[in-house]
């Protein structure tokens, strides 16, 4: 189970803006530790955002995304009080899912 994300969602004029701050190492697999050994790659590989049952965003992440990634996106159709669920899976199979209420 990954570390919790921080999600904010706000609706304005029919458009919902979602801001997600993820807590993840996002290790590229290119770096070496102090004893010269390669640090194995560990990064979020897939992210899905749902509004109710509807997928509003699906993304493939890779090792070029920074540590503790921040993602912001907008979609139409959200209403105040609705739930937005964001979940990711990383290359080691670890997952995390968090939700926020649109405000």
């Amino acid at each position: 189970m990954g570390n919790p994300m921080r999600i904010r969602a706000a609706e304005k004029d029919g458009v919902t803006e979602v801001k997600v701050l993820m807590n993840h190492e996002m290790e590229t697999g290119q770096r070496k530790d102090s004893s010269g050994n390669l640090i194995p790659a560990h990064f979020i590989s897939e992210l899905t955002a749902k509004h109710g049952d509807k997928v509003v965003l699906q993304a493939e992440f890779g090792p070029s995304v920074s540590k503790n990634p921040f993602l912001s996106f907008k979609f139409k159709g959200g209403a105040k009080g609705d739930k937005v669920v964001v979940s990711w899976i990383d290359n080691k199979g670890d997952t995390r899912s968090d939700e926020a209420t649109i405000g």
Binding site: L47, V55, V56, L57, Q58, A59, E60, F61, G62, S64, V65, S66, P69, L71
Partner: peptide, 13 residues
């Protein structure tokens, strides 16, 4: 949303 976005690229831009 069948077409997937490569968000990494967007973030770099």
């Amino acid at each position: 949303m069948k077409k997937r976005l490569t968000l990494a690229a967007l973030a770099i831009v």
